[in-house]
């Protein structure tokens, strides 16, 4: 487990981090979201030992993180960069060795990753000859090549096409499966929503919310409910129920596609009133689905950072 305890850091008059604390659990894919300038990169740089903190500390497995422990972490900086004129494979082997791997192990890891990330054919090419997407994959490979104990990835999905996003997610899940804590920042909240176990939301240098993604979403669920009735069923009565304040058009609601197999109603109501609607619906006929609507992460984010 990676623990960040009360990190503070100022640059001149700007307070980039203010008592930032959160944890990244073993095997947990933890999303780190915040707007530009919120302090994500500063926090990640401090975790990696690239920047120093004014106060606070980072712990891994209960130990304060020093250079030796940091060397076992894998890092993908926000500012992408590899040696442009050096071959991809040669470069990966160099970084793996710099992390303390033997040459044989470094070569084996590099080849394995190049294969998995679809770069095997470009292994000998200098990085500058690769397309931007492939450079990005090489950058991810550089973060993973030494079998890191912890992964810190700053915007790992930016600039990737959907296929590459899937390939990278696959690799990350694999790492998480081995028990590595993974912290990654992203602006792509839909991607974050899809893969994160936990979430840390930061704004203006302060942690605004942290915890399991699903729990955060549940906490921010509003009064909106969803009721799916069999196709062709009458749903006009819902609006007339006591306590129901708004009935939304189902078009465009999440999970409601062109499917005509069911008739979907979205309405706002207090929990008791919503249960009353459900009881009435059951009295009238079958109910395919009833739920309190989970807000999209973008909505949670807006509410938390407001």
């Amino acid at each position: 487990m990676l623990e960040i305890r009360a990190l503070s850091r100022s640059f001149g008059a700007v307070k980039a981090l203010d008592q930032v604390s959160f944890t990244v659990g073993a095997g947990r894919l933890t999303g780190f979201v915040g707007s530009n300038g919120a302090g994500k990169t500063t926090a990640m740089r401090i975790i990696m030992g690239v920047l120093s903190a004014d106060s606070g500390a980072v712990f891994y497995g209960g130990q304060p993180v020093d250079r030796a422990i940091d060397a076992t972490f894998g890092y993908m900086p926000e500012e992408r960069g590899l040696y442009p004129k050096m071959g991809v494979r040669e470069q990966l082997v160099f970084f793996a060795q710099l992390h303390g791997l033997t040459r044989a192990k470094a070569v084996a890891n590099a080849d394995g990753l190049l294969d998995r990330l679809g770069l095997a054919r470009r292994a000998k090419d200098p990085v500058e000859k690769l397309s931007l997407g492939n450079q990005q994959r090489a950058q991810i490979a550089a973060a993973l090549v030494h079998d890191p104990a912890v992964l810190i990835l700053d915007e790992p999905f930016s600039g990737l096409d959907p296929l590459a996003v899937d390939a990278v997610m696959e690799v990350l899940r694999d790492f998480a499966g081995r028990g590595a804590p993974i912290l990654f920042s992203s602006h792509q909240l839909d991607v974050v929503e899809r893969i994160t176990d936990d979430l840390v939301i930061i704004a203006a240098g302060q942690v605004k919310a942290a915890g399991a993604t699903a729990a955060l979403q549940a906490r921010h669920a509003g009064s909106r409910h969803r009721l799916d009735l069999p196709a062709g069923a009458d749903s006009a009565w819902v609006a007339a129920c006591p306590g129901v304040t708004a009935v939304a058009s189902p078009a465009g609601a999440p999970g409601v596609g062109a499917s005509t197999a069911s008739c979907t109603v979205l309405f706002d109501a207090a929990p008791d009133a919503a249960q009353a609607v459900l009881r009435q619906a059951l009295a009238l006929g079958p109910v395919n689905r009833f739920e309190r609507v989970t807000p999209p992460l973008s909505q949670v984010f807006k509410e938390v950072t407001r």
């Binding site: 690239v50 992408r80 590899l82």
Partner: peptide, 16 residues
């Protein structure tokens, strides 16, 4: 060049 190509941050995260 290391600074300009940004490889420096990855290097610094690896070794002092």
């Amino acid at each position: 060049v290391e600074k300009q190509t940004r490889v420096i941050e990855l290097l610094l995260a690896t070794v002092p």
